[in-house]
Design a protein around this nucleic acid. Sequence first.
DNA 1: TCCATATATTAGTATTGACTAATGTGTTTG
DNA 2: CAAACACATTAGTCAATACTAATATATGGA
Lengths: 123, 123
Amino acid sequence: MDYLDLKVKFLKGFADRTRLEILESIMDAEKTVLQIVSEIHGNQSNISQHLACLKGCGIVTARQEGKFIYYSLHDEQVKRLLTMFDTVLGDVEQQVASCDKNDQCLCGKSELKCLIKRRIISP
Amino acid sequence: MDYLDLKVKFLKGFADRTRLEILESIMDAEKTVLQIVSEIHGNQSNISQHLACLKGCGIVTARQEGKFIYYSLHDEQVKRLLTMFDTVLGDVEQQVASCDKNDQCLCGKSELKCLIKRRIISP
DNA sequence: TCCATATATTAGTATTGACTAATGTGTTTG
DNA sequence: CAAACACATTAGTCAATACTAATATATGGA
């Protein structure tokens, strides 16, 4: 694993809907797994796996207290980064939203418009 | 597609080795597709697809001039974000590098240690 | 010690995404 | 207009990843 691989892994940590929901949930205060599970949709197993992922990506840290494990953002820098995502996305949101022009890319291939374009289903 | 989906898509745009290589390549100056292709490994088709992806994610923009198309970062904010990735990664690099503890997560399941853990191959 | 609670792990499946090779489109130049 | 060039698109394949359900581990308390 070279530096670029580490960077990819770190960034992939953020690039998932469930994980972003988790991060939003613990943005301002540490939470236990069950607290997170109840705040966002998801089941316990799934959330646990995503938390392990976030930890492995250096995005969150865990702190045990009795039978509870509290998760929080790794540090202030990570929080700043999360904030910056929104800032920058503000600039480009329109472009990203016009997904029609790049159906094939990161839109989820079972998205309706993508299925149409790929002629799996008809309009 | 709600706001969170847009954010996920935007972030996924960064979360790939080839795309990061492209971004590094055009970080300081716009480049044509062929220039990018020759600077990093990759073949033309592959790079073209990644460029379409980056464009769709609002990360780069394209400018046509004759038969050439010049790609560059979408704006200064995106450049700042790319810089910030390195800054924050500096803090957490050690944690990310110790991939052993989270084999299953974003390490690539055909990585040697992952294959061992999953008992596909033996140590 | 036995049970309940909190969380992690495993295994299996389905989806998503990256890559290659081949072909298509548009632009310039002879 | 035809050939060459620059780039985009398509289709197909394989690998990576997210999810569910079931099971395992660990902690605290009756």
